[in-house]
Write a protein that binds this DNA or RNA. Structure first.
Length: 600
RNA sequence: GGGGCUGUAGCUCAGCAAGGUUAGAGCGCCUGCCUGUCACGCAGGAGGCCGCGGGUUCAAGUCCCGUCAGCCCCGCCA
């Protein structure tokens, strides 16, 4: 390399006029006029017009003639004010240009498979992933990653000030039952044995608390071998933290302060704290989901007792079968066609149908206010009650009802709620509504496995006041867990942990984990709890999701440098790939390894 | 494991409902011209396994079946 860069393009401004600089980067565009050639040169920071004039040096002009798009070049020359009327207000360096005196082609480039000049987001994602480096190189292509870098730096700065220690935990660790499917790593030295990649550093951070660390955090990769979604990748990053000698509100405060600091410093947005907090039960009752988007209202209302008094068989049958009737008011009216479409959406989500009532206040008589195929099943007094329950005081509105098992009604209405909010433009863009969900049940019944399983994880502390219910009515026990939801997306969850062996053993027993298995899988934790484990708790925030939301992206793939496709492939490298037979043999993965393992 | 959308030139897409001439457009690419452009312009040109396989038909980009890939979702994700 003959010409060494002296300055980033982004640093250039009018004060450089007359000065000699060398810039290095990639050719975005060239405009060839024969005698004069313009090249828009781009580096990580910005874009600059370089001018090659024939008169200056014929050799330089000859080289400039060969330069094509995406060639890597260094150019030395003087910064000059652009001639009057030739400024380009569209680019930040539009008042100046670089007059090339020397040029060096550092590398050529094939014609890129897609234009790096236009809006890259229009290009199919598969192609962008295969050529991720080209997408990154395009104008603004690094933005999400620069943003992410700032987030990481700011998190570290904040937590360091608060006395948190960043401590790394192993990736090659132990497979644990419960939770997601593990990624396994075969052990070469121990035939038939496997490491597992961590689903989270949960147990290690608890052990760190026993170790007296007191305040721990880590920006850490986690691995879960489950199916992918727009907000789920097999490897993802958590901001994991844990504190000793604290209660729920201490964790919530730290998180609220951290998020406020991040939003203020990086987005210039002031969050109002404390964040809203509702119980799991309220969330389900009012929104039908444990991660409601509260940027808009549209609360659900249960009208089971009212529905019982109608003569509408659909409602009555649902109730007879132990179901509920829940509804939602929308301050708009819909065409028949739209209502049919909404019904179809509801059915695709699992409802048998969607009942609706159109309400128009201005109608001449009470009866005419209500129009719906089902309104004939309602006595006037019931309609009056509906008016009350749904606080009908607008000019026109539509009520939607689902009659079904509670879970179905909740699920369908919560999805319908999101759908309608979007469709009716009820979501104000660029707002960030945080919400804590608390008082989760500790346990739930798993139909398939026919046993109790943890809602959060087996190390979650039950509420003190519910402890006596543990064995008697385990499903009524609430936990000391909390989730944090941003705009309807779960961005984190945590809990106060069990710090006494005896309670931990009781929980394992409830989960149908035998003492033997508990010892085998979690013995190291149980032992640690016996040596003076302090009360502790923590939280993990899904960093990919948080950054996605902060940037207004629809998928975490947009904020991960090299993400996997929905079928868990890396289009850049081709992983997962086949390996040599030798490697498989060495890892004892061929049939028969069990026997070898037993012989050992 | 299941449901939905998509797959046509290097890229973005039209054509498919209702099968029928040589499969089009914009951008990009190639050659030439051009000393003030900035998505430069002008003239000319190249470029297609219509994802893949099978079927129906005189005839398939278009209809049917299967399959693969990308995306969205359900299940799954303590």
């Amino acid at each position: 390399m003959r010409l060494k860069r002296t300055v980033y393009i982004g640093e250039l401004n009018k004060s450089f006029i007359g000065k000699e600089v060398t810039v290095s980067g990639w050719v975005l565009r060239r405009r060839d006029h024969g005698g004069v050639i313009f090249i828009d040169l781009r580096d990580r920071s910005d874009l600059l017009q370089v001018v090659f004039e024939e008169g200056i040096d014929p050799k330089v002009h000859e080289i400039a003639d060969e330069i094509k798009i995406e060639y890597v070049i260094s150019v030395k020359g003087k910064i000059r004010r652009r001639p009057l009327g030739m400024e380009n207000p569209k680019i930040s360096t539009g008042e100046i240009e670089l007059v090339a005196e020397e040029v060096e082609i550092l590398n050529t480039s094939k014609i890129p498979p897609f234009s790096l000049d236009e809006d890259i987001s229009e290009v199919s994602e598969a192609l962008r992933l295969k050529y991720r480096y080209l997408e990154m190189r395009s104008l603004g292509g690094l933005k999400p990653f620069i943003f992410r870098h700032k987030i990481n730096q700011t998190i570290r700065e904040f937590l360091d000030k608060r006395g948190f220690l960043e401590i790394e935990t192993p990736f090659l660790t132990k497979s644990t039952p419960e939770g997601a499917r593990d990624y396994l790593v075969p052990s070469r030295l121990y035939p038939g044995r496997f490491y597992a990649l961590p689903q989270s550093p949960q147990l290690f951070k608890q052990i760190l608390m026993v170790g007296g660390v007191d305040r721990y955090y880590q920006i850490v990769r986690c691995f879960r071998d489950e199916d992918l979604r727009a907000d789920r990748q097999p490897e993802f990053t958590q901001l994991d933290l844990e504190m000793s000698f604290i209660e729920e509100k201490d964790i919530m405060e730290v998180v609220e302060e951290l998020l406020s600091y991040l939003f203020e410093k990086i987005l210039g947005k002031t969050l109002s704290t404390p964040f809203s907090k509702i119980s799991y039960q309220e969330a389900l009752r009012d929104y039908g989901t444990d991660r409601p988007d509260i940027r808009f209202d549209l609360k659900l209302r249960e009208i089971s007792s009212l529905a019982e008094n109608t003569s509408f068989q659909v409602f009555r049958n649902a109730l007879k079968q132990g179901g509920v009737v829940k509804g939602m008011k929308v301050s708009s009216i819909f065409s028949r066609r739209e209502l049919e479409e909404l019904t179809q959406i509801s059915q695709e989500l699992g409802a048998k149908g969607l009942a609706w009532i159109r309400y128009q206040k201005g109608a001449s008589s009470f009866q005419e206010r209500w129009s719906s195929p089902i309104v004939k099943f309602f006595e006037p007094s019931l309609l009056e009650k509906l008016e009350e329950v749904f606080d009908l005081n607008e000019e026109s509105a539509t009520l939607f009802f689902i009659a079904d098992k509670e879970e179905v009604a909740n699920f369908v209405l919560s999805e319908l709620r999101k759908h309608l909010a979007q469709r009716l433009n009820l979501i104000s863009e660029n707002t960030f509504s945080f919400l804590w969900i608390v008082d989760f049940p500790l346990l739930e019944w798993d139909e398939k496995e026919e046993r109790l399983v943890s809602v959060h994880h087996p190390f979650t502390h039950p509420k003190e006041e519910d402890l006596e219910l543990l064995e008697r009515e385990p499903l009524k026990v609430r936990s000391r867990a909390y989730d944090i939801v941003l705009n309807g997306v779960e961005i984190g969850g945590g809990s106060i942990r069990i710090h006494k062996r005896e309670l931990q053993e009781r929980i394992f027993k409830l989960l149908n984990i035998s003492p033997l298995e508990a010892e085998e899988k979690f013995g190291f934790l149980l032992t640690a709890l016996e040596y003076g484990a302090p009360p502790h708790g923590g939280i993990a925030l899904g960093l990919d999701r948080l950054i996605m939301l902060m940037l207004g992206k629809k998928s975490i793939r947009e904020v991960i440098a090299f993400p996997k496709t929905q079928k868990a492939q890396c289009l850049l490298t081709g992983a997962p790939s086949e390996v040599k037979v030798e490697q498989i043999l060495e890892l004892h993965l061929l049939p028969g390894w069990e026997r070898k393992a037993m012989v050992r």
